[in-house]
Nucleic acid binder design. Structure first.
Lengths: 344, 344
DNA sequence: CTGAAAGCGCTTACAG
DNA sequence: CTGAAAGCGCTTACAG
């Protein structure tokens, strides 16, 4: 169909020069049409557009990026094992939200997975050499060195969740974990519960630490004190929620409520409670966290704390775009909300 | 720490020119060190390497790509709604396999999601303008126009699964679906079953069509003929497997075996059979397809057809690399294998 | 509104 | 082994 393109020989793609020749204008004029058509006569614009169609011209982004210093794309970077995220319904919502927010800027999102140190090296090098304009960094664990490496390389970065330790100055967007936890525990107290256990997230994640802190604050405030045997840790997976709950029941069979630091773990908790013959919420009230798809799918449906994922993703993109433009934006903390369903 | 970098003013990154100056060599020599160090004296190489460290130099990939015509990255492109894939354990395995196979070439994988026509346009434009060297295209549905658009734009593409219709000439890698189906149905026959139903995949997907075809072939070969009321369609989701199975049971309560065209749907089928009070495999034998994590997680564990995902991903990457090098590679069909567990 | 020209940061024959 | 030079395909002041 095309003239003598042997297999193995890539057809030379038309350049701006070919378009200019066909249109009978200079390359500068073609470029002006390509970049918004300002300062171009209608006649010239028409000629160029039809020449573009005739030649099948597509801009060479490497050349453009070399000059503008922009790639026109943004990375959504996961620095943890992929399975964990794909299992988590929050992740889906966040990914979709960011994709949509970027689409409004006509910017494609590139999802990058860097679960192993080896992959992290590769990705940091790739990103650091300019192939994206910025990074939306998703990592449940706080101390990841990737964020700092990227920042040091001069890449605009916005983190999802509150970074801990030295990297506190990173731009980030997060829900108010501690306040959400307080709200839930107050709700459990308000329904008359007094022996309230907690299944926490990992203690090296901000959500793990903050939600536990909120729980302790409210119990102290209610004069109930802190009982270590009412605390068990999960890793945000469904199974870990079941395991931790079984543990708590063994230690404190008189448990009358459970605050579980994620909906997915709460699903596991419900399974463990059913296995142990406890009725929810009659015997044990259960409160989750996230208001993810898992909360609605659970039986009974979960009373939970809503994280505003749509706003989180929108704010992440807004902050990142601002950083890319060179503004020195910092952090956004968003409020949570109690969602009452059947479990508490 | 660095000299007068006001916020909003990006620090000028060191170029090859800076490195050359510090090292006291020409830019050509720096470039040679960067590209493998051939034809460079040890002394010059040392000087360059230490100058790179001193300046914090990182190659500008746009400039490099402009010359080499290569971006050094590959896209893993999904042209369907993301949830569907993330729910599917096969997807995880395929993604990991491709990531690893590319890592051996030191090439980062860029995951791109293009579920909506709008996103597809954006991604096709982005990819077509040269930002990746090739595309691994994942789509359960056959007729996606994305593949042809990419090929027309001159982008090397390898498809997972057998493309249907006009795009048959696309390079692709697939398991032998039809033969796998034949193997499973023969196995069910060998265990004495005679009223064998099937839950198919969507009939606009190659797996949906081919696995049904294999089922029909073996039944014909066994002289059992084809009973339309033994056939129900699912969409590869767990729920659809449950629904289709309930339907079949209503139509043919005397069913004694079920071939379900994916493990995930087979999990749904098991749930529906349990609900209907049927014992598996005593009353109804169940055969799945994929040998995914779902097969081992199911109760009873699933007898299934193993798709060699590790080989599929390895072959996809191999074909794509060959295409990128300009070779005119075509298709690879890989054999499947019966895996016996408890359900049949 | 338009063209000629400089230049983005690299790689790669080409001479030596 | 090394340097000077051309050139990849674009954008963008600069004159007109």
């Amino acid at each position: 169909m095309s003239m003598s393109t042997k297999p193995g020989e890539r057809r030379r793609r038309p350049t701006i020069h070919d378009v200019a020749r066909v249109a009978g204008v200079s390359r500068g004029t073609v470029s002006r049409v390509l970049n918004g058509g300002h300062y171009v006569s209608p006649a010239a614009a028409d000629a160029v557009n039809s020449a573009i169609r005739k030649t099948g011209y597509v801009v060479n982004r490497h050349a453009r990026s070399l000059i503008t210093g922009r790639s026109g794309s943004v990375a959504f970077l996961l620095t943890e094992p992929q399975d964990k995220f794909f299992e988590d319904p929050n992740f889906n919502v966040l990914l979709r939200g960011c994709t949509e927010a970027l689409a409004a800027h006509d910017i494609p999102l590139l999802l990058m997975l860097a679960g192993t140190p080896d992959e992290q090296r590769r990705i940091v090098r790739y990103v650091g050499s300019g192939h994206v304009d910025g990074v939306l960094l998703i990592s449940s664990h706080a101390g990841s060195p990737v964020a700092e490496q990227l920042v040091r390389a001069g890449v605009p970065v916005v983190v999802c969740g509150t970074p801990q330790g030295t990297s506190e100055r990173l731009a980030h967007v997060a829900a108010d974990d501690r306040d959400g936890a307080r709200t839930m525990v107050r709700h459990l107290l308000a329904t008359g519960r007094r022996r309230i256990g907690i299944v926490t997230g990992p203690q090296d994640t901000p959500g793990g630490v903050e939600r536990l802190a909120g729980y302790r604050e409210v119990l102290a405030e209610a004069g109930l004190g802190y009982a270590p045997e009412l605390v068990a840790a999960g890793d945000y997976s469904r199974d870990s929620g079941a395991r931790a709950t079984a543990e708590l029941l063994a230690r404190r069979p008189d448990l009358d409520a459970l605050f579980v630091a994620s909906d997915l773990m709460a699903q596991g908790a419900l399974a463990a409670l059913a296995e142990a013959g406890r009725r929810v919420p009659d015997d044990v009230a259960v409160g989750g966290f996230d208001d993810s798809a898992a909360a609605v799918a659970a039986r009974p449906t979960l009373t939970t704390i809503r994280q505003p994922w749509d706003r989180i993703s929108a704010e992440m993109v807004r902050l990142l775009m601002a950083r890319i433009e060179g503004q020195d934006t910092s952090a956004v903390i968003l409020p949570t909300e109690l969602v009452r369903r059947d479990s508490a």
